[in-house]
């Protein structure tokens, strides 16, 4: 469901996790008329009905809303020192 690049794996394995905090792939909707969904990689507390994906020794949360958009479109989590974590998978659609 979620691919993680080697660079992202290395960075995630070096992080000391605080209580209850885990990484999350999160669909972020912006727009108004034409809506864009882009995926954020954030670190936060659990939400109700989260699904937890285990990939390369890393646990990543996804909420029910995000999960539906990821089905059939697995994202890739990448990391670079310049851009930080990035989720490669963007959707744009027009709701007008």
């Amino acid at each position: 469901m979620i691919h993680i690049t080697k660079e992202a794996q290395q960075k995630l394995s070096s992080i000391e996790w605080q209580d209850g905090v885990l990484p999350r792939v999160d669909a972020n909707v912006t727009g108004g008329c034409g809506l864009t969904i882009n995926y954020l990689f954030i670190f936060d507390q659990a939400r109700k009905n989260d699904t937890i994906y285990h990939s390369h020794g890393v646990s990543i949360r996804v909420d029910p809303f995000t999960k539906r958009y990821l089905e059939g479109n697995p994202p890739t989590v990448d990391y670079s020192d310049t851009d930080g974590f990035q989720v490669i998978n963007e959707v744009e659609f027009d709701s007008c």
Binding site: A27, V29, L35, R47, K48, N49, D50, D63, P64, F65
Partner: peptide, 10 residues
């Protein structure tokens, strides 16, 4: 509602 896994779009 987002904290409960549901979004404005839903």
């Amino acid at each position: 509602q987002k904290k409960l896994g549901v979004r404005t779009m839903n």
